[in-house]
Write a protein that binds this DNA or RNA. Structure first.
Lengths: 215, 215, 215, 215
DNA sequence: GATGAATGAGTCTTCATTCAT
DNA sequence: TATGAATGAAGACTCATTCAT
């Protein structure tokens, strides 16, 4: 199921695992990478934030780049797995499911630090292409697939009119992803431009989708 | 009209020879900043791409940060001005206008290198907060305002049902902005995930909006 | 004529040449490498000795290893060429020639800083094998060849008895090479163990060789 | 009998548990020092080769330098002692004794890892002067003395003509020492330049010496 | 104005040394 | 006694910035 890009990014030669300490290091690293980007993050600061010395980082990782990739990978992988379970949706009708999906997405990603990951990967996509490909293939595609399945179910149920759900899926995800990215960047330094809360926004969004999908 | 943030970003003390600043330098710089981010861009490369020596950059700018801000500022300012005129739309009915607006946006921004600007500003928002604020206040807000005006006009004309246009405006812009950012990042290193062309996507998007706005 | 090893060492990808400055840098570098060895030499010190800043070294060379190899290479190459001319010996009889050869060798190498090169290459042979191979193939072999030719001439002239000159050549060179190495190492920190001057030693040495070669 | 240098090198204040110092550690250390030099040898590798942890090294030695000196010292000391007995030669005639001496030297030193010691000490003489002095005073001088005694005996017996045996001794040792060093350095990475085996070389060498010493 | 050689502060990375277990 | 995780000083290397030409 995994793409080649995924493989390239998932199975690193450099391994290491004393499990427990590394996780703290990666968390500290990811926080700073999300905040400042890869190049602007100093390992000194990562070490300081993790409460260790600079040399300790090199006990677990072989380079700054390794730390970077690991911090992204180790955050994404549980994310993928967690999301995999969401696929086993309940048997709610599609319209309810749609709202549930967006709420779930927001609570799991948009409202958490994970949303910083999306910004980070976009910012560094050109510098770390396999990482971007991995993200695209394993995270985004999967995420959209869940959404498409819900829509297809709605069509099958006759609740939604027949549309190209695959093409629409991007339109449906965009507002949430956009808001998530925004909250990690411009939203961090400006008083919000959004007039409504995320929940209210989702309500409006779902309402709009449902209206547009009326048979 | 300008916010304080705008002022801070627009009129730096140290800028003086604005008129003589070669556009090539700024263009070269912006291209690289968009591609790699601020920290990962070397002035050596900027100079090489612009076809000048490294020292020459310092005849026109006082620092790397200055080059960065100038390249963003002097790209955005004409953008704002150009967009200001779009506001004075023709007297098309609101539904036509809406499609025209998105097409125009895509052709002017989404499909051009300017879309890299959005990605860049998001990526560096935490490191350059005034820049982000300026962008938020002077570009995004203005852009949304045009869209809101169109929607309000549609409501006034009775073509659209009455909705909170301000709140909806984010939902409406997101798919295009998202696609623009995407094309500058992950889309650069993956075969496209989007199944349809931008024009087709806009058609779907407008269609969806109009359906959802039916009175 | 050159061996593969020679090629590998002679034609580096990394080139660079602003000719004039580099030569001073390499001289400073070689002095320190000879004195301390590769790993124990700090580029800071090389720069200081050359009277430049650390960064300057990187304008001309791409790494410490590059500096090392270049300092050896650029010293050896003229050495080889200079020695090539010595081959065109005068028409002295072989016994005179032999003495002349050793005196020349001592004055050109043994008594100069070049003798440090031999020590250096032996010390770093395991860490820089191509360098050692180059030295072996292009310098040592050539050097021995000249000596062998002289001995062969003596045999042809009937002045020397017939011996395996190739096998003997090592026996003949060893005392001078050994003394050269010694002077760059232990001799540097001890009062000399040698009871006689180099010239006297050469006299004894030639005398011994000639006696042993009597027909 | 020992020189001050010898004392300084042999009896360091900080050495105390000489008896318990595992020979494996010293052997592993010496092997790597010989192969790579002092600075280029990592204690990590020494520990790994000795099959202990890095920390263990510090139970027996106080520093890397201590390990280095000990590995050299404790290899040399038995060497000296063993060699001292060689002095009490049998009552062979001097010419036979000479050949026996060289063969013994080669088998004891030249053909063993001990020959690496000579290379090592030369390479590090400038960085570790007392070590070099110790080696010079206690090993080389002693070694030469044995050789000189043999030659003197030959002169006394009337088998050799009267020469300055002390001055000649260096000429006589050089080929073997040179070959020993060579085998630990350039010879390690090149196919041998020597056309004959060490034994054959010694035969040629002794033959040459004897011829030149004919009354 | 324009150049590009030179600088040196800043970062990544290594590794001898320590110390809690 | 033995371990190996942790440390931090030291050293290679980069790159924004300066300046003589």
């Amino acid at each position: 199921m995994s793409t080649p890009a995924a493989e390239a990014f998932k199975a690193p030669r450099w391994e290491r695992r004393k499990d427990s300490r590394p996780a703290e290091l990666l968390q500290a690293a990811l926080d700073l990478f999300v905040e400042r980007g890869f190049a602007a993050t100093r390992l000194d600061d990562v070490a300081k934030r993790a409460g260790v010395s600079k040399g300790t980082l090199y006990l677990y990782f072989s380079s700054k780049e390794d730390i970077f990739k690991a911090s992204v990978r180790e955050t994404i992988v549980p994310m993928i797995e967690a999301f995999g379970e969401t696929v086993n949706q309940s048997d709610l009708p599609a319209d309810k499911l749609l709202r549930a999906f967006f709420m779930e997405w927001w609570n799991s990603f948009g409202a958490t630090k994970l949303s910083g990951l999306v910004k980070l990967i976009m910012a560094e996509a050109n510098n770390f292409p396999e990482m971007a490909r991995f993200f695209n293939d394993e995270v985004i595609a999967l995420n959209l697939r869940v959404l498409i399945d819900i829509a297809d179910k709605g069509v099958a149920e006759g609740r939604f009119r027949k549309v190209d759900t695959e093409a629409h899926s991007h339109l449906w995800m965009a507002p949430l992803v956009m808001r998530a990215i925004w909250s990690q960047s411009v939203g961090n330094v400006c008083t919000s431009m959004y007039m409504v809360s995320a929940e209210e926004m989702i309500d409006l969004h779902v309402d709009q989708i449902l209206r547009s999908l009326r048979p």
